[in-house]
């Protein structure tokens, strides 16, 4: 079937097999490989992208289901000259990534969280990350980074 998806602001249109999962569509057809597959059971969150601005696990969504929708991946966050967006900067400043495999999903989940709850408590941040697993960082610096991104957004306002 044909699916037309606006990915990171650019309209894409492709013929795909009906069973194509969104994550494979993004990686193998659209050619954006930042989004990773970590578990297959919508547990680990490595495949998190934004669909119409909300975090979803792209390994558990068919490309066909988001036909006509807007999808944003990690590749769509930085500015035109490659400058990091506030969440990306906060992750770097706080050493919130080690191997980097969970990072694309983690950053997108965090982005979605702050859109819905701009001033989360630490407990709220931790609860919101329960579907994003990381084996390297112990989550400590990820939580710090998100709290700090929320604060800097506050300061900028």
């Amino acid at each position: 079937m044909n699916v037309t998806i606006t990915v990171n602001g650019e309209k894409t249109s492709h013929e795909v097999e009906d069973r194509t999962l969104l994550v494979h569509h993004l990686r193998d057809v659209v050619g954006l490989t930042a989004t990773n597959v970590g578990c297959d059971t919508s547990t680990c969150g490595a495949c998190t992208v934004l669909v119409n601005g909300e975090s979803v696990k792209s390994c558990t969504v068919l490309a066909a289901q988001v036909d006509g929708d807007e999808v944003q991946t990690l590749e769509g966050l930085a500015g035109e000259n490659g400058e990091l967006d506030p969440m990306q900067s906060a992750f770097r400043e706080h050493h919130a990534l080690q191997c980097g495999f969970c990072t694309p999903g983690m950053v997108m989940a965090a982005t979605s969280l702050l859109r819905e709850n701009p001033h989360p408590t630490e407990e709220e941040v931790r609860a919101a990350l329960k579907g994003n697993l990381c084996r390297c960082t112990g989550y400590h610096n990820i939580v710090q980074a998100i709290m700090s991104a929320a604060e800097s957004a506050e300061g900028a306002r």
Partner: peptide, 9 residues
């Protein structure tokens, strides 16, 4: 229920 991503779908 689940996590934020699951609740979005």
């Amino acid at each position: 229920v689940g996590d934020p991503q699951v609740r979005h779908r």
